[in-house]
Computed example of a mutant assay.
Amino acid sequence: MYGHRWTASFGVSADQGHAWAATLAGLTGAQIANGLAGLVERGDEWPPSAPDFRKLCEGASPEALGLPSTSAAYREACRNSHPAADQRWSHPAVHHAACEVGFSELRSLPEEKSRLLFERAYAVTVRMLLAGEVLREIPKALPASVSVSTPEVGQAALAALRTRMRGVAA
Rank of each mutant, 00 (worst) to 15 (best):
W20D: 02
L24K: 09
A25M: 11
G26L: 06
T28Q: 10
T28N: 11
T28A: 07
A30W: 01
Q31R: 09
I32L: 14
L36P: 05
L36W: 07
A37E: 05
G38Y: 04
G38K: 05
L39K: 07
L39E: 15
E41I: 05
D44H: 14
W46D: 15
S49D: 15
P51F: 09
D52P: 03
F53Q: 04
K55C: 11
E58W: 06
A60F: 14
A60D: 13
E63W: 01
E63Y: 01
A64Y: 03
L65N: 02
L67D: 00
P68T: 00
T70K: 01
A73Q: 01
Y74Q: 02
R75I: 10
R75L: 14
A77I: 00
C78M: 04
R79L: 15
N80C: 00
A84G: 03
A84V: 06
A85L: 02
S90R: 06
H95Y: 14
H96Y: 07
V101W: 02
F103I: 01
S104H: 14
E105C: 12
E105G: 09
E105I: 13
S108P: 02
E111N: 09
E112C: 07
K113I: 14
K113L: 14
S114V: 03
R115W: 06
L116S: 14
L117T: 04
F118C: 04
E119P: 02
E119I: 04
E119F: 04
R120K: 14
V126C: 01
M128E: 05
L130T: 01
A131C: 08
G132Q: 04
E133G: 08
E133V: 08
R136E: 14
R136A: 15
K140R: 15
K140S: 13
A141D: 14
P143R: 06
P143S: 06
A144G: 05
V146R: 12
S147L: 11
S147N: 12
V148W: 08
V148H: 11
P151E: 12
P151R: 10
P151Y: 08
Q155A: 15
A156Y: 07
R164M: 13
R166M: 12
R166A: 15
G167R: 15
